[in-house]
């Protein structure tokens, strides 16, 4: 069963189609990296996958089931976690409340591995999440998203503002999860991070796919051509 696939999806805001006829899929234990310059429709693609925006055409399938017009809160039940690019955490809640929210008994024991990896989170547990730096918020969001243990995880620019050492640890974590069969779709601007985790690339420009393939087929130079100015 394919954790997430999307077939010729189009959609956007108002009368404007930001994303045009995109298709792709990610298998269990693989990472699909969506890359492209800003404003080409990467986040919009994720919003179409998660159900925040309606698909004007095409079909999204999550966990083998057609998502149709399901709301985001219902799609989660199909087996998908999402870490958005903007407002990635609950600013008004403490860091520990942010993490406790999704745990049934409210205990943070399950986060031990993450705290070992990102000690800064444990230090900030009592702090309001809104007071964290942008990078720390991303770490918190990443931790929350991965700790949900869903078969598919969608990350929107998880490394924005994060220090390189922590970026490497995020990559380690993702690679560990891949081995356990989790599928990832990662929108990323940082090519060095993408290279650490990607199995497949989908390169976007002007809302369309300009290049798609495995990392064996697509080299750094091919992507850089579409990323840089």
């Amino acid at each position: 069963m394919i954790p997430i696939s999307f077939n010729t999806v189009s959609g956007g805001y108002g009368s404007l189609n930001v994303v045009q006829d995109l298709s792709g899929e990610v298998e269990a234990g693989k990472v699909l990296c969506v890359v492209g310059r800003n404003g080409v429709g990467k986040s919009t693609l994720l919003k179409l996958l998660l159900g925040y925006l309606p698909c004007r055409s095409g079909e999204v399938t999550i966990g083998g089931r057609k998502a149709g017009s399901m709301a985001p809160e219902a799609r989660r039940g199909l087996g998908i976690s999402y870490c958005p690019q903007e407002r990635p955490v609950f600013d008004d809640l403490s860091v520990s409340d942010n993490l406790a929210l999704m745990v049934k008994d409210g205990r943070l024991d399950g986060y031990r591995r993450f705290f070992d990896l990102f000690p800064v989170l444990e230090k900030r547990l009592a702090q309001r999440a809104g007071t964290l730096s942008g990078g720390e918020k991303k770490l918190l969001s990443f931790t929350r998203g991965l700790a949900e243990h869903q078969p598919a995880v969608v990350l929107d620019e998880p490394t924005e503002g994060v220090q390189w050492e922590n970026i490497q640890r995020m990559a380690e974590m993702i690679n560990g999860r891949k081995a356990g069969g989790t599928a990832f779709i990662v929108v990323e601007q940082n090519l060095s991070f993408a290279e650490l985790i990607a199995d497949h690339y989908l390169v976007m420009d002007h809302g369309r796919c300009v290049l798609i393939g495995s990392c064996a087929e697509i080299g750094r130079a091919d992507i850089v051509k579409h990323l840089t100015v």
Partner: peptide, 15 residues
């Protein structure tokens, strides 16, 4: 601009 390595680094993401 296209020849400027600092600009390219911003777009590709640094280490």
């Amino acid at each position: 601009i296209q020849a400027d390595p600092a600009v390219q680094a911003v777009y590709v993401g640094g280490q």
